[in-house]
Design a binder for these strands. Structure first.
Lengths: 221, 221
DNA sequence: TTAATAGTGTCTGTTAGACAGTATGGG
DNA sequence: CCCATACTGTCTAACAGACACTATTAA
Protein backbone atom coordinates (compact mmCIF):
# COMPACT_ATOMS: atom_id res chain seq x y z
CA UNK A 1 0.00 0.00 0.00
CA UNK A 2 2.82 2.34 0.90
CA UNK A 3 5.62 1.77 -1.57
CA UNK A 4 6.47 5.45 -1.72
CA UNK A 5 10.03 6.60 -2.35
CA UNK A 6 10.75 9.17 0.40
CA UNK A 7 13.54 11.66 -0.23
CA UNK A 8 14.69 15.11 0.78
CA UNK A 9 16.19 17.77 -1.48
CA UNK A 10 17.98 20.92 -0.40
CA UNK A 11 18.09 24.20 -2.31
CA UNK A 12 21.23 25.87 -1.01
CA UNK A 13 21.21 29.53 -2.04
CA UNK A 14 23.80 32.24 -1.81
CA UNK A 15 24.58 35.65 -3.26
CA UNK A 16 27.42 35.58 -5.77
CA UNK A 17 28.28 38.47 -8.08
CA UNK A 18 25.24 40.44 -6.91
CA UNK A 19 22.86 37.65 -7.93
CA UNK A 20 21.30 34.51 -6.48
CA UNK A 21 23.07 31.22 -7.10
CA UNK A 22 22.06 27.67 -6.26
CA UNK A 23 24.33 24.78 -5.28
CA UNK A 24 24.28 21.84 -7.70
CA UNK A 25 26.20 18.54 -7.76
CA UNK A 26 26.78 15.90 -10.38
CA UNK A 27 24.73 12.85 -9.41
CA UNK A 28 26.90 9.88 -8.47
CA UNK A 29 24.38 7.19 -9.44
CA UNK A 30 21.43 6.40 -11.67
CA UNK A 31 19.00 7.78 -12.55
CA UNK A 32 20.52 10.87 -14.17
CA UNK A 33 24.09 9.79 -13.28
CA UNK A 34 26.60 12.64 -13.84
CA UNK A 35 23.83 15.18 -14.37
CA UNK A 36 23.81 18.36 -12.25
CA UNK A 37 21.05 18.20 -9.63
CA UNK A 38 20.11 19.42 -6.17
CA UNK A 39 21.80 17.71 -3.24
CA UNK A 40 19.28 15.14 -2.07
CA UNK A 41 18.89 11.64 -0.73
CA UNK A 42 16.63 9.11 0.88
CA UNK A 43 15.15 9.58 4.31
CA UNK A 44 16.92 7.15 6.65
CA UNK A 45 14.41 5.96 9.20
CA UNK A 46 17.16 4.65 11.48
CA UNK A 47 19.26 7.82 11.64
CA UNK A 48 16.97 10.76 10.97
CA UNK A 49 14.93 12.31 13.77
CA UNK A 50 12.62 13.79 11.13
CA UNK A 51 12.69 15.13 7.58
CA UNK A 52 14.56 18.22 8.70
CA UNK A 53 17.23 16.00 10.22
CA UNK A 54 17.49 14.14 6.94
CA UNK A 55 17.91 17.43 5.07
CA UNK A 56 20.66 18.57 7.46
CA UNK A 57 22.43 15.23 7.12
CA UNK A 58 22.22 15.22 3.32
CA UNK A 59 23.45 18.80 3.08
CA UNK A 60 26.38 18.06 5.39
CA UNK A 61 27.30 14.85 3.55
CA UNK A 62 27.13 16.31 0.06
CA UNK A 63 28.45 19.83 0.58
CA UNK A 64 30.13 19.85 3.99
CA UNK A 65 27.96 22.77 5.02
CA UNK A 66 25.97 23.19 8.21
CA UNK A 67 23.63 26.00 7.23
CA UNK A 68 22.51 28.47 9.90
CA UNK A 69 19.15 28.83 8.16
CA UNK A 70 17.27 25.78 6.89
CA UNK A 71 13.51 25.97 6.33
CA UNK A 72 11.03 23.53 4.90
CA UNK A 73 9.84 24.69 1.49
CA UNK A 74 7.20 22.20 0.32
CA UNK A 75 6.70 18.57 -0.56
CA UNK A 76 6.70 17.48 -4.18
CA UNK A 77 5.15 14.16 -5.14
CA UNK A 78 3.70 12.02 -7.88
CA UNK A 79 4.31 8.96 -10.06
CA UNK A 80 6.25 10.75 -12.80
CA UNK A 81 8.83 12.94 -11.09
CA UNK A 82 11.21 10.01 -10.49
CA UNK A 83 11.61 7.18 -13.04
CA UNK A 84 11.92 4.70 -10.16
CA UNK A 85 8.27 5.09 -9.22
CA UNK A 86 5.78 7.07 -7.13
CA UNK A 87 8.01 9.32 -5.11
CA UNK A 88 7.88 12.15 -2.68
CA UNK A 89 10.51 14.76 -1.87
CA UNK A 90 10.38 17.06 1.10
CA UNK A 91 12.26 20.12 -0.14
CA UNK A 92 14.18 22.49 2.14
CA UNK A 93 16.00 25.68 1.36
CA UNK A 94 19.14 26.89 3.08
CA UNK A 95 20.87 30.27 3.05
CA UNK A 96 24.58 30.87 3.49
CA UNK A 97 27.14 33.50 2.60
CA UNK A 98 29.40 32.74 -0.33
CA UNK A 99 32.41 32.58 2.01
CA UNK A 100 30.91 29.63 3.87
CA UNK A 101 30.77 27.64 0.64
CA UNK A 102 34.38 28.47 -0.06
CA UNK A 103 35.42 27.47 3.47
CA UNK A 104 33.62 24.11 3.16
CA UNK A 105 35.80 23.54 0.10
CA UNK A 106 33.87 20.77 -1.60
CA UNK A 107 35.14 20.94 -5.18
CA UNK A 108 32.12 19.03 -6.53
CA UNK A 109 29.71 21.76 -5.53
CA UNK A 110 28.91 24.14 -8.36
CA UNK A 111 27.17 27.44 -7.76
CA UNK A 112 25.03 28.42 -10.74
CA UNK A 113 23.01 31.57 -11.18
CA UNK A 114 19.29 30.92 -10.78
CA UNK A 115 18.67 33.30 -13.68
CA UNK A 116 20.57 30.97 -15.98
CA UNK A 117 17.56 28.62 -15.88
CA UNK A 118 19.61 25.51 -16.49
CA UNK A 119 17.53 22.40 -17.17
CA UNK A 120 17.55 20.09 -14.17
CA UNK A 121 16.55 16.44 -13.70
CA UNK A 122 13.44 15.27 -11.84
CA UNK A 123 11.31 18.31 -10.97
CA UNK A 124 14.31 20.13 -9.52
CA UNK A 125 13.76 23.16 -11.72
CA UNK A 126 10.35 23.66 -10.14
CA UNK A 127 11.78 23.15 -6.66
CA UNK A 128 14.48 25.78 -7.25
CA UNK A 129 11.89 28.20 -8.63
CA UNK A 130 9.69 27.68 -5.59
CA UNK A 131 12.63 28.29 -3.23
CA UNK A 132 13.61 31.47 -5.04
CA UNK A 133 10.02 32.72 -4.99
CA UNK A 134 9.73 31.99 -1.27
CA UNK A 135 13.00 33.74 -0.49
CA UNK A 136 12.09 36.80 -2.56
CA UNK A 137 8.65 36.96 -0.97
CA UNK A 138 9.95 36.74 2.60
CA UNK A 139 12.69 39.25 1.87
CA UNK A 140 10.08 41.94 1.38
CA UNK A 141 9.17 42.08 5.04
CA UNK A 142 11.76 40.21 7.12
CA UNK A 143 15.38 39.90 8.14
CA UNK A 144 15.77 36.68 6.13
CA UNK A 145 18.40 38.09 3.70
CA UNK A 146 20.78 38.62 6.64
CA UNK A 147 21.59 34.90 6.46
CA UNK A 148 23.03 35.51 2.99
CA UNK A 149 25.50 38.02 4.43
CA UNK A 150 28.55 36.94 6.36
CA UNK A 151 28.95 37.00 10.12
CA UNK A 152 29.58 40.72 10.01
CA UNK A 153 28.58 43.12 7.29
CA UNK A 154 27.95 46.78 6.60
CA UNK A 155 24.60 48.37 5.87
CA UNK A 156 25.57 49.18 2.26
CA UNK A 157 26.50 45.49 1.76
CA UNK A 158 23.20 44.36 3.26
CA UNK A 159 21.28 46.81 1.09
CA UNK A 160 22.98 45.39 -2.01
CA UNK A 161 21.80 41.90 -0.99
CA UNK A 162 18.23 43.09 -0.50
CA UNK A 163 18.38 44.88 -3.84
CA UNK A 164 19.66 41.75 -5.59
CA UNK A 165 16.71 39.82 -4.17
CA UNK A 166 14.07 42.45 -4.89
CA UNK A 167 15.47 43.21 -8.31
CA UNK A 168 15.24 46.96 -7.84
CA UNK A 169 17.20 49.74 -6.12
CA UNK A 170 16.00 50.69 -2.64
CA UNK A 171 15.85 54.07 -0.99
CA UNK A 172 18.79 54.35 1.39
CA UNK A 173 17.02 56.37 4.09
CA UNK A 174 13.96 54.10 4.08
CA UNK A 175 16.11 50.99 4.08
CA UNK A 176 17.99 52.14 7.15
CA UNK A 177 14.78 53.15 8.92
CA UNK A 178 13.39 49.66 8.30
CA UNK A 179 16.52 47.89 9.50
CA UNK A 180 16.40 49.99 12.67
CA UNK A 181 12.70 49.19 13.06
CA UNK A 182 13.41 45.46 12.99
CA UNK A 183 16.00 46.03 15.73
CA UNK A 184 17.92 42.97 14.67
CA UNK A 185 21.44 44.36 14.21
CA UNK A 186 24.12 45.36 16.66
CA UNK A 187 27.19 47.38 15.78
CA UNK A 188 30.54 45.64 15.99
CA UNK A 189 32.72 48.10 17.86
CA UNK A 190 36.07 49.32 16.63
CA UNK A 191 36.12 47.54 13.31
CA UNK A 192 35.11 49.20 10.07
CA UNK A 193 35.23 47.99 6.53
CA UNK A 194 38.51 48.92 4.86
CA UNK A 195 38.77 49.12 1.11
CA UNK A 196 38.07 52.24 -0.90
CA UNK A 197 39.22 55.81 -0.90
CA UNK A 198 36.26 56.95 1.15
CA UNK A 199 34.69 56.91 4.57
CA UNK A 200 34.50 53.32 5.88
CA UNK A 201 31.14 51.87 6.89
CA UNK A 202 30.11 50.63 10.32
CA UNK A 203 30.16 46.85 10.71
CA UNK A 204 27.14 45.05 12.13
CA UNK A 205 26.15 41.52 13.05
CA UNK A 206 22.84 39.82 13.71
CA UNK A 207 21.89 40.03 17.37
CA UNK A 208 22.46 36.60 18.91
CA UNK A 209 18.80 36.45 19.96
CA UNK A 210 17.80 36.62 16.29
CA UNK A 211 20.04 33.77 15.12
CA UNK A 212 17.06 31.42 15.38
CA UNK A 213 13.90 33.34 14.50
CA UNK A 214 13.30 36.08 11.95
CA UNK A 215 12.49 39.71 12.61
CA UNK A 216 9.48 40.87 10.62
CA UNK A 217 8.15 44.25 9.58
CA UNK A 218 4.58 45.46 10.06
CA UNK A 219 4.71 46.95 6.54
CA UNK A 220 7.23 45.75 3.98
CA UNK A 221 10.34 47.53 2.74
CA UNK B 1 15.41 1.50 3.75
CA UNK B 2 12.16 3.28 3.06
CA UNK B 3 9.58 1.85 5.45
CA UNK B 4 7.99 5.25 5.95
CA UNK B 5 4.27 5.55 6.66
CA UNK B 6 3.00 8.16 4.17
CA UNK B 7 -0.23 9.95 5.00
CA UNK B 8 -2.08 13.17 4.31
CA UNK B 9 -4.09 15.21 6.80
CA UNK B 10 -6.50 18.02 6.00
CA UNK B 11 -7.27 20.99 8.23
CA UNK B 12 -10.70 22.08 7.06
CA UNK B 13 -11.43 25.54 8.43
CA UNK B 14 -14.56 27.67 8.45
CA UNK B 15 -16.01 30.69 10.20
CA UNK B 16 -18.76 29.77 12.65
CA UNK B 17 -20.20 32.17 15.22
CA UNK B 18 -17.63 34.83 14.29
CA UNK B 19 -14.73 32.52 15.06
CA UNK B 20 -12.54 29.95 13.34
CA UNK B 21 -13.58 26.31 13.61
CA UNK B 22 -11.84 23.15 12.44
CA UNK B 23 -13.48 19.95 11.16
CA UNK B 24 -12.79 16.87 13.28
CA UNK B 25 -13.99 13.26 12.99
CA UNK B 26 -13.98 10.31 15.34
CA UNK B 27 -11.33 7.86 14.11
CA UNK B 28 -12.86 4.61 12.85
CA UNK B 29 -9.82 2.43 13.57
CA UNK B 30 -6.75 2.04 15.77
CA UNK B 31 -4.66 3.83 16.82
CA UNK B 32 -6.77 6.36 18.71
CA UNK B 33 -10.05 4.64 17.67
CA UNK B 34 -13.09 6.83 18.48
CA UNK B 35 -10.90 9.84 19.28
CA UNK B 36 -11.56 13.14 17.48
CA UNK B 37 -8.86 13.81 14.90
CA UNK B 38 -8.23 15.54 11.58
CA UNK B 39 -9.54 13.82 8.48
CA UNK B 40 -6.55 11.96 7.09
CA UNK B 41 -5.45 8.76 5.44
CA UNK B 42 -2.73 6.92 3.60
CA UNK B 43 -1.40 8.03 0.26
CA UNK B 44 -2.65 5.52 -2.33
CA UNK B 45 0.01 5.12 -4.95
CA UNK B 46 -2.42 3.50 -7.37
CA UNK B 47 -5.12 6.16 -7.26
CA UNK B 48 -3.50 9.43 -6.28
CA UNK B 49 -1.87 11.65 -8.88
CA UNK B 50 0.11 13.31 -6.09
CA UNK B 51 -0.19 14.26 -2.43
CA UNK B 52 -2.69 16.99 -3.26
CA UNK B 53 -4.84 14.41 -5.03
CA UNK B 54 -4.66 12.24 -1.94
CA UNK B 55 -5.74 15.16 0.23
CA UNK B 56 -8.69 15.93 -2.06
CA UNK B 57 -9.73 12.27 -2.08
CA UNK B 58 -9.49 11.95 1.71
CA UNK B 59 -11.43 15.14 2.28
CA UNK B 60 -14.15 14.03 -0.12
CA UNK B 61 -14.38 10.54 1.38
CA UNK B 62 -14.49 11.66 5.00
CA UNK B 63 -16.52 14.86 4.81
CA UNK B 64 -18.20 14.86 1.39
CA UNK B 65 -16.67 18.24 0.67
CA UNK B 66 -14.83 19.39 -2.44
CA UNK B 67 -13.13 22.52 -1.18
CA UNK B 68 -12.56 25.41 -3.57
CA UNK B 69 -9.35 26.30 -1.74
CA UNK B 70 -6.87 23.61 -0.75
CA UNK B 71 -3.24 24.52 -0.13
CA UNK B 72 -0.29 22.53 1.08
CA UNK B 73 0.66 23.57 4.61
CA UNK B 74 3.77 21.59 5.56
CA UNK B 75 5.02 18.07 6.07
CA UNK B 76 5.29 16.66 9.57
CA UNK B 77 7.50 13.66 10.22
CA UNK B 78 9.39 11.60 12.76
CA UNK B 79 9.44 8.29 14.63
CA UNK B 80 7.21 9.37 17.51
CA UNK B 81 4.22 11.11 15.99
CA UNK B 82 2.48 7.82 15.08
CA UNK B 83 2.70 4.74 17.33
CA UNK B 84 2.88 2.54 14.24
CA UNK B 85 6.36 3.79 13.36
CA UNK B 86 8.38 6.43 11.51
CA UNK B 87 5.71 8.37 9.70
CA UNK B 88 5.24 11.37 7.54
CA UNK B 89 2.11 13.43 6.97
CA UNK B 90 1.73 15.99 4.24
CA UNK B 91 -0.74 18.45 5.73
CA UNK B 92 -3.13 20.57 3.68
CA UNK B 93 -5.56 23.24 4.75
CA UNK B 94 -8.90 23.92 3.11
CA UNK B 95 -11.29 26.85 3.45
CA UNK B 96 -15.06 26.68 3.02
CA UNK B 97 -18.10 28.62 4.12
CA UNK B 98 -20.13 27.13 6.93
CA UNK B 99 -23.06 26.56 4.55
CA UNK B 100 -20.97 24.18 2.43
CA UNK B 101 -20.41 21.97 5.46
CA UNK B 102 -24.10 21.95 6.18
CA UNK B 103 -24.94 21.11 2.55
CA UNK B 104 -22.46 18.20 2.56
CA UNK B 105 -24.46 16.88 5.51
CA UNK B 106 -21.99 14.43 6.98
CA UNK B 107 -23.25 13.98 10.53
CA UNK B 108 -19.89 12.61 11.75
CA UNK B 109 -18.11 15.88 11.04
CA UNK B 110 -17.81 18.08 14.10
CA UNK B 111 -16.78 21.72 13.84
CA UNK B 112 -14.89 22.81 16.93
CA UNK B 113 -13.55 26.27 17.69
CA UNK B 114 -9.80 26.45 17.28
CA UNK B 115 -9.68 28.62 20.42
CA UNK B 116 -11.01 25.73 22.47
CA UNK B 117 -7.58 24.09 22.15
CA UNK B 118 -8.93 20.57 22.44
CA UNK B 119 -6.23 17.92 22.84
CA UNK B 120 -5.80 15.95 19.64
CA UNK B 121 -4.07 12.66 18.82
CA UNK B 122 -0.79 12.33 16.90
CA UNK B 123 0.65 15.82 16.36
CA UNK B 124 -2.68 17.11 15.06
CA UNK B 125 -2.76 19.97 17.56
CA UNK B 126 0.47 21.32 16.06
CA UNK B 127 -0.85 20.87 12.54
CA UNK B 128 -4.03 22.80 13.34
CA UNK B 129 -2.00 25.56 14.99
CA UNK B 130 0.24 25.81 11.93
CA UNK B 131 -2.78 26.03 9.62
CA UNK B 132 -4.40 28.75 11.72
CA UNK B 133 -1.15 30.71 11.85
CA UNK B 134 -0.74 30.43 8.07
CA UNK B 135 -4.31 31.53 7.42
CA UNK B 136 -4.04 34.49 9.80
CA UNK B 137 -0.73 35.52 8.29
CA UNK B 138 -1.98 35.40 4.70
CA UNK B 139 -5.18 37.19 5.65
CA UNK B 140 -3.19 40.31 6.43
CA UNK B 141 -2.35 40.99 2.81
CA UNK B 142 -4.50 38.84 0.52
CA UNK B 143 -7.97 37.86 -0.59
CA UNK B 144 -7.67 34.46 1.09
CA UNK B 145 -10.53 35.04 3.60
CA UNK B 146 -12.99 35.33 0.71
CA UNK B 147 -13.00 31.54 0.50
CA UNK B 148 -14.50 31.48 3.99
CA UNK B 149 -17.46 33.55 2.76
CA UNK B 150 -20.22 32.02 0.68
CA UNK B 151 -20.63 32.35 -3.08
CA UNK B 152 -22.04 35.83 -2.60
CA UNK B 153 -21.53 38.11 0.36
CA UNK B 154 -21.69 41.73 1.41
CA UNK B 155 -18.74 43.91 2.35
CA UNK B 156 -19.86 44.12 6.00
CA UNK B 157 -19.99 40.31 6.12
CA UNK B 158 -16.53 40.06 4.59
CA UNK B 159 -15.17 42.63 7.01
CA UNK B 160 -16.51 40.59 9.93
CA UNK B 161 -14.63 37.56 8.59
CA UNK B 162 -11.39 39.51 8.27
CA UNK B 163 -11.90 40.89 11.78
CA UNK B 164 -12.49 37.40 13.19
CA UNK B 165 -9.19 36.29 11.63
CA UNK B 166 -7.17 39.33 12.65
CA UNK B 167 -8.70 39.42 16.11
CA UNK B 168 -9.25 43.16 16.02
CA UNK B 169 -11.76 45.62 14.55
CA UNK B 170 -10.82 47.13 11.20
CA UNK B 171 -11.38 50.61 9.89
CA UNK B 172 -14.34 50.53 7.51
CA UNK B 173 -13.03 53.13 5.07
CA UNK B 174 -9.57 51.58 4.90
CA UNK B 175 -11.01 48.09 4.54
CA UNK B 176 -13.11 49.12 1.58
CA UNK B 177 -10.20 50.95 -0.01
CA UNK B 178 -8.09 47.78 0.27
CA UNK B 179 -10.78 45.53 -1.16
CA UNK B 180 -11.12 47.93 -4.09
CA UNK B 181 -7.33 47.96 -4.51
CA UNK B 182 -7.24 44.17 -4.80
CA UNK B 183 -9.90 44.44 -7.53
CA UNK B 184 -11.13 40.95 -6.83
CA UNK B 185 -14.86 41.51 -6.29
CA UNK B 186 -17.69 42.16 -8.66
CA UNK B 187 -21.11 43.38 -7.65
CA UNK B 188 -24.01 40.99 -8.09
CA UNK B 189 -26.68 43.07 -9.78
CA UNK B 190 -30.19 43.43 -8.48
CA UNK B 191 -29.89 41.38 -5.37
CA UNK B 192 -29.23 42.88 -1.98
CA UNK B 193 -29.05 41.32 1.42
CA UNK B 194 -32.45 41.32 3.10
CA UNK B 195 -32.67 41.09 6.87
CA UNK B 196 -32.69 44.06 9.16
CA UNK B 197 -34.56 47.29 9.49
CA UNK B 198 -31.88 49.21 7.68
CA UNK B 199 -30.34 49.89 4.32
CA UNK B 200 -29.46 46.58 2.63
CA UNK B 201 -25.87 45.98 1.57
CA UNK B 202 -24.63 45.36 -1.95
CA UNK B 203 -23.90 41.72 -2.72
CA UNK B 204 -20.56 40.76 -4.25
CA UNK B 205 -18.85 37.64 -5.50
CA UNK B 206 -15.25 36.75 -6.25
CA UNK B 207 -14.38 37.50 -9.86
CA UNK B 208 -14.24 34.20 -11.74
CA UNK B 209 -10.62 34.92 -12.73
CA UNK B 210 -9.66 34.94 -9.04
CA UNK B 211 -11.26 31.59 -8.19
CA UNK B 212 -7.85 29.97 -8.62
CA UNK B 213 -5.19 32.42 -7.51
CA UNK B 214 -5.17 34.97 -4.71
CA UNK B 215 -5.14 38.73 -5.00
CA UNK B 216 -2.43 40.30 -2.86
CA UNK B 217 -1.84 43.76 -1.47
CA UNK B 218 1.38 45.75 -1.78
CA UNK B 219 0.95 46.84 1.84
CA UNK B 220 -1.25 44.87 4.24
CA UNK B 221 -4.65 45.81 5.64
C1' DT C 1 -40.41 59.70 11.81
C1' DT C 2 -37.12 56.85 14.04
C1' DA C 3 -33.76 53.31 14.41
C1' DA C 4 -30.30 50.88 12.42
C1' DT C 5 -26.87 49.78 9.33
C1' DA C 6 -24.72 50.79 4.44
C1' DG C 7 -21.85 53.58 2.08
C1' DT C 8 -18.91 58.04 1.12
C1' DG C 9 -16.33 62.67 1.51
C1' DT C 10 -12.84 64.79 3.87
C1' DC C 11 -9.49 65.97 7.36
C1' DT C 12 -5.40 64.77 9.85
C1' DG C 13 -1.55 62.25 11.58
C1' DT C 14 1.87 58.84 10.00
C1' DT C 15 4.98 56.92 6.86
C1' DA C 16 7.94 56.51 2.83
C1' DG C 17 10.90 58.53 -0.49
C1' DA C 18 13.62 62.54 -2.54
C1' DC C 19 17.12 65.63 -1.82
C1' DA C 20 20.71 67.74 0.00
C1' DG C 21 23.77 68.29 3.47
C1' DT C 22 27.73 66.75 6.65
C1' DA C 23 31.37 63.09 7.87
C1' DT C 24 35.49 60.66 7.02
C1' DG C 25 38.51 57.91 4.76
C1' DG C 26 42.43 57.68 0.64
C1' DG C 27 45.16 59.90 -2.84
C1' DC D 1 42.96 70.01 -1.58
C1' DC D 2 39.70 66.61 -4.13
C1' DC D 3 36.99 62.54 -4.66
C1' DA D 4 34.26 58.82 -3.23
C1' DT D 5 31.22 56.75 -0.31
C1' DA D 6 28.96 56.67 4.56
C1' DC D 7 25.63 58.62 7.09
C1' DT D 8 21.83 62.03 8.57
C1' DG D 9 18.42 66.06 8.69
C1' DT D 10 14.45 67.64 6.58
C1' DC D 11 10.86 68.50 3.17
C1' DT D 12 7.09 66.54 0.57
C1' DA D 13 3.93 63.28 -1.28
C1' DA D 14 1.29 59.23 -0.41
C1' DC D 15 -1.31 56.59 2.69
C1' DA D 16 -4.15 55.01 6.61
C1' DG D 17 -7.40 55.94 10.14
C1' DA D 18 -11.00 59.02 12.43
C1' DC D 19 -15.05 61.40 11.91
C1' DA D 20 -19.02 62.96 10.16
C1' DC D 21 -22.29 63.02 6.82
C1' DT D 22 -25.72 61.03 3.48
C1' DA D 23 -28.55 56.81 1.85
C1' DT D 24 -31.98 53.39 2.38
C1' DT D 25 -34.56 50.05 4.38
C1' DA D 26 -38.35 48.23 8.22
C1' DA D 27 -41.32 49.36 11.75
Amino acid sequence: MNDVICTVDVVLLTIKDNGLSVALLKRDREPYKDVLALPGGFVHVREDADARGAAMRVLKEKTGIVAPYLEQLATFSGPLRDPRGWSLSIAYYALVSFEVIGRAGHPDVQMLSVDQRLELPFDHRGIVDAAVARLRSKSQYSSLPCYLAGDTFTLPQLQRIYEALMGEPLNKVSFRRKMAEMAMLEAVEGRMEAGGAHRPAQLYRLKPALREHLAVLERGL
